[in-house]
Design a binder for these strands. Structure first.
Lengths: 246, 246
DNA sequence: TCGTAGGGACGAACGGCGTTCGTCAACGAA
DNA sequence: TTCGTTGACGAACGCCGTTCGTCCCTACGA
């Protein structure tokens, strides 16, 4: 291999025509771009993910990305779908639909939470990726095969999905706030945050807001995971009650 | 009225000292800023709401706003709370808690939907405004007075609120998309959108996604309001089932 | 082997954004 | 009257997403 410049940095004599620069073209590709975006997302959060930042990471200018990705929105969709790809699905067993739906919700919620604040991009995109329909087929099939009328099942699944993503979204907002405030520890942030809210509630006039001021600790107490499970069971119980013959 | 420059653009002679520009000080105030922001939000949507745009509307530069508003986030919080102020609350009657909670949810959802896409700002802010706690006291008090343990009531209310705002948020994303795509009519947009999704689902391989491809119309059919009510009743039924002795 | 068409890479720029800095004029208090 | 404070504001900083036009490598047909 002939190089334009030796490894030690000594320039080649000018009369030696450069036949082949080692990397005549960068090997950009959509996959590489998405992967790079993913790395930034995980390491520094959604706010740090800009087209320019991705390009910089790949040692090029932002314009180069647009040959492989239509725009930032498409990049976010690709990233989101890649995350959804990490959801592992069991074999479908309609007899245990409730159990499986619950496990699915927890798994999806976990995966979304595992990637910093992707969820903030999730609600903003219309999910039409491969992994999105894969998950959709699983949960929708579960309810249909369990006997729920298809139209109703469609709505129920839609509501469940909204709940999962909505909660993850809220979580990712806190994640971003935590990052912006300089915390590197979920617990520290949570404590500081709830102290602040508590103080605010306690300062309210008790005669005007008797219940809020009386139960400040209860309002602030519950952790995210417990809250998520509570609402999840609320929804699942509601679906069960609407399931025909069972 | 003496002006620094005539209406026809002829400059005044330099030796004529300008004694009094007509409005020596603009009468900026936080209220005025929020009000202006509200007008932009309603008329042109959240994407059009920038600090510069608000300043322009007030015939000044963006720097002037920062004397009355800490930053854009604070402006959004103020706007959001102003919207929440439009929620009308009935007198609390714990005996009819479910009915009242349902009416509240529908009212809140309606108000959020009535202001273009404020909801997109809603999830992004920690609601600590006056009107936010006012609504909180109402719904929380309702459950507590109806006999639910305070800690559980706190979680239940939290979940219900997340659902309301989450759905409104999703709706406002469609609103923004509709606006960006040039539609000025919710129905036209909805039709075009569901046609697109239907086509996408129909093109999927049937052997891999049997349920999705079989029930395409059911998946796409339901309107937003019906979906919202379905999920709302899911949650309310779940809360009812957890209400002690009731 | 040559000529050429196509397309990816990319520098530069456009028009936006939120926010900060420094200046200046008006006002209230002393 | 003087002076310190404060709001208004022009200008600028450093970002952003995206587009345009150019260059040159590559593949292909002759």
């Amino acid at each position: 291999m002939v190089d334009r410049k030796g490894a030690d940095g000594v320039p080649a004599p000018p009369w030696r025509k450069t036949r082949k620069p080692v990397q005549p073209r960068r090997q950009l590709s959509q996959d590489l771009i998405v992967e790079t975006g993913m790395r930034i997302l995980d390491a520094e959060g959604l706010d740090a993910l800009s087209m320019r930042r991705v390009a910089q990471e790949l040692d090029t200018g932002p314009a180069s990305l647009y040959a492989h990705v239509a725009n930032k929105e498409e990049l976010l969709e690709l990233l989101y779908d890649r995350v959804l790809g990490e959801i592992v699905l069991p074999e479908r067993d309609p007899g245990r639909w409730k159990e499986q739906l619950r496990a699915y919700a927890l798994e999806a919620h976990r995966v979304l939470g595992a990637h910093g604040d992707v969820a903030r991009a999730a609600l903003a995109t219309i999910p039409t990726g491969e992994n999105s329909v894969r998950a959709g087929e699983f949960v929708y099939g579960l309810l249909v095969e369990a006997g729920m009328p298809p139209r109703e099942a469609a709505i129920a699944i839609d509501r469940l999905s909204l709940y999962i993503v909505g909660d993850a979204y809220e979580g990712s907002l806190h994640y971003a706030r935590m990052r912006a405030a300089g915390y590197d520890n979920r617990e520290d942030y949570f404590n500081a945050f709830s102290d602040q809210i508590s103080a605010y509630y306690r300062a309210l006039p008790a005669e005007q807001f008797p219940h809020v001021t009386e139960h400040v600790d209860d309002l602030v107490d519950a952790e995210g995971e417990e809250r998520f499970r509570y609402g999840l069971d609320l929804i699942l119980d509601g679906i069960e009650a609407r399931m025909p013959e069972g």
